Amino acid sequence: MPRPKKCRKVCCLPPISQFVPAGEDVSCRETVVMTVDEYETVRLIDNEGFSQEECSGYMNIARTTVQQIYDGARKKIAHALVDGLSLKIEGGDYRLCDGKERYCGCGGCRRHRLGYMDETQKEENL
C-alpha cells in the first residue's frame, strides 16, 4: 500500500487559472491540466528564484518530491506551448499558507505580509 500524500503548502492560488492560445478556436481541443502544487513549484523555482531545496522547505515536502512535481509541471507547460493547447490550473494536494508563521520564505504571500506587518506594528506600539 503506498504512503498517503502529504499536503503541500502553497502561498496563494494563481490569479489567472486558465491560459488559451490566441486566434484559434480551442473549445474542441484538449486542455492540459496543471495542479496548484505544480504551479507553486514553477512559481517558486522559476519566478522567485528558489532552489529545489528551498522550495521543499517552504512547501514542507522532500526535495525529491519537489523535483518530481517540477519536472511534471514543465512537461505539461511544454506540451501546452508546443501543441497550442489551453492550460488550466486546478486541483492537487495542497493547503494554503495561513500567514501565521513569522516568515514563510515565499516572498510573495499577501496574506503573510499583511499578517506580519500587523504583528510588527503591534510590537512597535508596545
Results as ranks from 00 to 15, higher is better:
residue 64 T to R: 13
residue 116 Y to I: 00
residue 58 Y to E: 01
residue 94 Y to Q: 09
residue 5 K to N: 04
residue 119 E to D: 15
residue 75 K to S: 06
residue 105 G to F: 04
residue 72 G to H: 02
residue 100 K to W: 04
residue 74 R to H: 09
residue 58 Y to K: 03
residue 75 K to V: 00
residue 114 L to G: 10
residue 126 L to Y: 08
residue 126 L to M: 09
residue 126 L to F: 11
residue 102 R to N: 11
residue 104 C to T: 07
residue 92 G to E: 03
residue 71 D to I: 03
residue 21 P to W: 00
residue 104 C to F: 07
residue 93 D to C: 07
residue 112 H to Y: 14
residue 7 C to P: 11
residue 43 R to K: 15
residue 87 L to M: 12
residue 110 R to D: 10
residue 33 V to T: 15
residue 36 V to P: 12
residue 97 C to V: 04
residue 65 T to F: 05
residue 72 G to A: 07
residue 73 A to R: 07
residue 87 L to K: 11
residue 124 E to M: 15
residue 95 R to E: 14
residue 121 Q to F: 07
residue 39 Y to R: 11
residue 65 T to C: 08
residue 114 L to R: 14
residue 63 R to A: 02
residue 122 K to L: 03
residue 5 K to C: 03
residue 121 Q to R: 14
residue 125 N to L: 13
residue 91 G to Q: 01
residue 97 C to F: 05
residue 53 E to Q: 14
residue 93 D to E: 14
residue 108 G to S: 08
residue 27 S to F: 04
residue 64 T to V: 13
residue 5 K to H: 01
residue 3 R to T: 10
residue 17 S to R: 13
residue 28 C to I: 10
residue 43 R to L: 12
residue 45 I to D: 09
residue 54 E to V: 05
residue 41 T to V: 13
residue 41 T to G: 05
residue 102 R to T: 11
residue 33 V to D: 08
residue 25 D to H: 06
residue 9 K to S: 07
residue 7 C to H: 12
residue 53 E to F: 06
residue 96 L to Y: 05
residue 29 R to F: 08
residue 32 V to H: 00
residue 42 V to D: 04
residue 49 G to V: 06
residue 118 D to W: 08
residue 41 T to R: 04
residue 15 P to M: 12
residue 121 Q to K: 10
residue 98 D to M: 07
residue 126 L to A: 13
residue 115 G to D: 12
residue 118 D to T: 13
residue 92 G to T: 09
